[in-house]
Amino acid sequence: MKTLQITDPIVSIDWLAMHLDHPDLVILDASIKKVTSKEDTQKPDIKIKGARFFDLKNSFSDKNTDIPNMLPSPKDFSEACKKLGISSHHKIIIYDTLGIYSSPRVWWMFKTMGHQNVAVLNGGFPAWHNAKLPCEPEIKTEHNYGNFEANYLPDLVADANTILNEIDNKNSLIMDARSHGRFIAKEPEPRESLKGGHIPNSVNLPYTMVLNNNKMKTRTELQEVFKDFNIDNQKLIFTCGSGITACIIMLAAEIAGYYKTSVYDGSWSEWGQLDGVPVQC
């Protein structure tokens, strides 16, 4: 069997169907409930054939902080991957049940941990299921222990100190994926403890602007979206409410051809509760 290589950050359901049984392929279901949704959305009781559940909220988040979804340490990430049967040679495809929502977060996590053979499934489970491609019941499965070892790349991660240092830097651009209403403090934050507004000098790119019917827009369409921001070799720092949708627009940026990028891991969940940091409405 030919060696499997992932050359793009996003793959189609046709690509995955063609390689579904490749021994080097690992499919991860990274589904979570949508943060801003009041609906009691439940994971379906079926999954893509062979998929493993990537528990973003529990196994793959830092439990030593109250800020949601924070990146775990490289050691903890590696250990959780090993328990899922993931090894360093695996090629990883990530999906979620909302089309494209939490899967880009996991894509960014693997890239941050030095794993490059990783991509998001465009359209996620809805596109796969609607095409009547192979699924199976959602049952708990034990996996052979993997040998995954993280090689942490800190340049892909921004923290609050990074943001403070970059706010006035003309060579950096902070892009906020929240809705425009939240960006200008006209809509309430889903977490009541947080202030409204945005990081000064940041720009607003709601993550919905890079999607079309829960699928990522084409490369050409995304280039048009980013062209409006007059990006001239700047480093792009992506933020949102809790570090989830920031990764959607980071994925969109990479597809459009921007590679000097990072994600503010704490995002507004951290910035909106910090004392003494600047906030603009």
Rank of each mutant, 00 (worst) to 15 (best):
I6G: 04
T7I: 13
D8Y: 07
I13T: 15
D14W: 02
D14I: 06
D14P: 02
M18R: 12
L20V: 00
D21T: 10
H22S: 10
H22Y: 04
P23A: 02
D24T: 10
D29C: 01
S31M: 03
S31L: 08
I32R: 00
E39F: 13
Q42G: 04
P44A: 09
P44D: 06
I48C: 01
R52G: 00
F53D: 02
K57R: 11
N58G: 12
S61G: 04
K63S: 14
T65F: 05
T65V: 13
D66M: 13
P74T: 09
D76V: 12
S78D: 06
E79P: 04
C81W: 03
K82H: 05
L84S: 08
G85T: 13
I86T: 09
H89L: 08
I92L: 12
I93A: 05
G99R: 00
S102F: 01
V106W: 00
W108V: 09
M109E: 13
F110N: 08
T112N: 09
T112E: 08
G114E: 03
G114L: 07
G114H: 12
H115R: 11
H115N: 12
V118F: 06
A119M: 06
A119C: 07
A119S: 14
A127E: 01
A127N: 00
N130W: 01
K132T: 07
L133V: 01
C135S: 10
C135R: 03
K140P: 01
E142C: 06
N144L: 11
Y145I: 11
A150L: 08
N151M: 02
Y152I: 00
L153A: 11
L153E: 10
P154I: 09
P154E: 12
V157T: 15
D159C: 10
A160S: 15
L164H: 02
N165P: 09
N169T: 08
N169E: 12
K170W: 00
K170M: 02
S172A: 12
L173Y: 09
I174S: 07
I174Q: 03
I174N: 03
A177I: 11
A177C: 14
R178A: 05
G181Q: 04
F183H: 11
I184H: 13
A185V: 10
E189G: 11
G196P: 07
I199Y: 11
P200M: 12
V203Q: 11
L205N: 06
L205R: 04
M209H: 13
M216N: 05
K217T: 03
T218F: 00
E221A: 13
E221I: 02
Q223G: 14
Q223C: 07
E224Y: 01
F226G: 11
F226W: 14
F226C: 12
K227A: 13
F229Q: 06
N230W: 03
N233E: 15
K235V: 02
F238H: 07
C240Y: 08
G241F: 00
G241K: 12
G243I: 02
I244G: 01
A246H: 06
I248N: 12
I248T: 14
A253F: 00
I255F: 01
Y258R: 05
Y259S: 12
Y259F: 13
K260N: 15
K260Y: 07
T261K: 05
V263L: 03
Y264T: 03
Y264A: 01
S267T: 08
S267L: 08
W268H: 05
W268D: 06
S269C: 12
W271E: 00
G272S: 06
D275Y: 10
G276A: 06
P278G: 06
V279Q: 08
Q280R: 14
Q280N: 14
